[in-house]
Write a protein that binds this DNA or RNA. Structure first.
Length: 550
RNA sequence: GCGUGAGUAGCUCAGCAGGAUAGAGCGUCCCUCUCCUAAAGGGAAGGUCGCGGGUUCGAAUCCCGCCUCGCGCACCA
């Protein structure tokens, strides 16, 4: 029995109770779903609900009174062995070992599908993340989003959503010009321009471009040549890094295309027609304050060039035209001022601002000896995705970036990483999975097979605990999707790994010495394999491998 | 100044979609491998959940105020 199943049973018991006139609760006060939680204290049963406390006020009845009414009905739920009223009105529910144990079999039979859902079926999501300018390699901030974004995409997919991973390739504007000038300077053997980029990669790309085009400095517009070839090389390198990181985008969208096909121009005309643009100081402004922004924004600069936001409005329109219901943007905290602008743009287009959802991720800082290190692209002192992967590997890099809430700043201590220490919990989870595989191998070698299954044999306290946390997994996925928080998956895997290790320590799957194989052994193998499956499924959602041996 | 995120164990962080005795990893100190992987497990120590009010049966969690830190507040992208 999973908490969701129990929740559903309690909900219908509650409804039945109201229908029968035992409880007078206004319909609007009835929750769609009664929440059940795992009590911290095992003396409080397997699951508990505070529904009686919540209904006390709207029903105008003391909570314990409501609890009493519900107790009789809850006790009749198949699989429920005991219901107790505790404290101010908690309902503590104990489940039959057999009913709880059935889950092990259900998980093994569901296989890779366990935990997935169809709650988001039919929703088309455009998830845009990383979108780093092709003026340099992906730094740590982008790497964090690559890990979190890709994982979020996988979690959405587990809930049935149709997800497109998209990378907005910013190949238009002055950053790119600076990049081109930096390449040109390098090729000429000159120092990097004051507002340009430094770092070894500039030299490497400049050399590569020169090698492929020996006469490039004699071209009519060498800077333009370096721009086009350099961006191409840089972008190929970025794609390669992402690919090795396990992140492959469905769409790499070129900002330039919005200008080339006239989409931006057309859109600006449309906005003018709607009366949302006005001219001031030689520029064209979007009246974004009318749509919740804190100030109006320039869309066409007084020099006649489009401002960045112009492309972004057109891009949003483009996404909607491609049929996406929800456009999610994952931005760094240094861009959070952009949220109101994007929503205002959608609003101005006559679209629903709720189609735009912006997720803000806090910064990743480098720390050395407890002191923050300043990263500078210009000075070339950035730590890149490749650097991180070189030191800790893809699994540890992805896991350690995905296990934190995006709301938290994270500090990465290079000394700790270079020590290759076991401080990273990814090993804890992966080791648990490897252990399940070792146990399965030993079981096979000693003739323990999943022939029989006796759910009632899973009686040990650690088995009850393990089953409970495995049962929580689908709910954790649903919440991770609903709140756009992949770290919840990682954290729960750590809980499952802990429960598994404790179970492993006291409950053997294979018999000792020449003891006979019993149904207890066989049933425990089901539980072992169920755990293996859930860990593998969860690690998969994080883009981390589930090794069979370590 | 305005906006926004954070402040929880020595360190790094969960918990915040109100619940019962506030958790995990790492670090420190004990203990457990003649039998499934000790990258593990058990135990100990370690907390004014930034501070002050409020809401209620109940607040780390919600509301208000304050303090500290990060990040924004362009005709840059």
């Amino acid at each position: 029995m999973t908490p969701e199943e129990l929740s559903a049973a309690i909900t219908s018991a509650l409804t039945a109770s109201v229908d029968a006139g035992e409880l007078a609760v206004p319909a609007e006060a009835l929750p769609k779903e009664v929440r059940v939680e795992r009590p911290k204290n095992r003396e409080h049963g397997d699951w508990a609900t505070n529904i009686a406390l919540q209904l006390a006020k709207p029903a105008g009845v003391p909570p314990r009174k409501i609890a009493e009414v519900l107790t009789a009905r809850l006790a009749e739920i198949p699989g429920v062995s005991r219901v107790e009223i505790a404290g101010p009105g908690f309902l503590n529910i104990t489940v039959d070992a057999a009913a709880a144990g059935e889950l092990a079999k259900a998980i093994v039979e569901a296989g890779t599908a366990f935990g997935s859902n169809t709650a988001m079926a039919g929703t088309r999501i455009n998830l845009e993340f990383v979108s780093a300018n092709p003026t340099g390699p992906i730094h740590l901030g982008g790497t964090r989003w690559a890990a979190v974004g890709d994982s979020l995409a996988r979690i959405f997919q587990s809930q049935g959503a149709d997800v497109t991973r998209e990378y907005y390739f910013n190949d238009h504007g002055i950053q790119i010009d600076r990049f081109a000038r930096s390449l040109l300077a390098s090729a000429k053997g000159e120092p990097a321009p004051e507002d340009g980029y430094g770092g070894d990669y500039i030299t490497e790309i400049a050399d590569a471009v020169t090698a492929a085009h020996p006469d490039i400095l004699a071209a009519a517009d060498p800077q333009e040549e370096f721009r086009s070839h350099g961006v191409e090389l840089m972008f190929a390198a970025i794609k390669e890094s992402l690919h090795e990181f396990g992140v492959d985008f469905d769409v790499y969208f070129h900002e330039n295309s919005l200008f080339e096909d006239g989409a931006v121009e057309k859109l600006l005309e449309q906005l003018k027609g709607l009366g949302h643009l006005y001219a001031k100081d030689g520029a064209w402004w979007l009246k974004s304050t009318a749509f919740g922004d804190d100030k109006d924004r320039v869309v066409i600069k007084s020099d006649g060039h489009a401002a960045y936001i112009a492309g972004d409005i057109a891009y949003f329109k483009n996404k909607r035209d491609r049929g996406f219901d929800l456009c999610i943007y994952m931005l760094g905290a240094d861009h959070h001022g952009y949220v109101a602008r994007l929503k205002a743009a959608a609003d101005a287009l006559g679209d629903d601002a709720d189609r735009v959802e912006v997720l803000i991720g806090q910064m990743v800082n480098l720390v050395k000896d407890g002191v923050p290190l300043r990263m500078s692209k210009r000075a070339g002192t950035v730590v890149t995705m490749e650097d991180l992967v070189d030191v800790v590997g893809t699994d540890a890099a992805r896991y350690s970036l995905a296990r934190f809430s995006s709301d938290s700043n994270i500090d990465i201590d290079l000394d700790v990483l270079t020590k290759r220490s076991n401080e990273n919990p990814v090993f804890y989870v992966q080791y648990a999975h490897a252990r399940t595989c070792a146990v399965a191998r030993n079981a096979a070698a000693t003739g323990v097979e999943r022939t029989a299954f006796d759910a009632a044999a899973l009686t040990h306290a650690t088995e009850s605990e393990l089953l409970a946390v495995l049962g929580q997994y689908p709910g954790v996925l649903a919440q991770a999707a609903a709140y756009r928080e992949p770290h919840r998956v990682a954290r729960h895997l750590e809980v499952i790994a802990g429960a598994y290790h404790r179970w492993y320590d006291v409950c053997r799957v294979t018999p000792l010495g020449d003891e006979p194989v019993t149904d207890v052994n066989r049933t425990r193998l089901w539980l072992n394999d169920a755990t293996s499956q859930v860990l593998a499924n969860g690690l998969g959602l994080l883009g981390v491998t589930a090794p069979e041996r370590m």
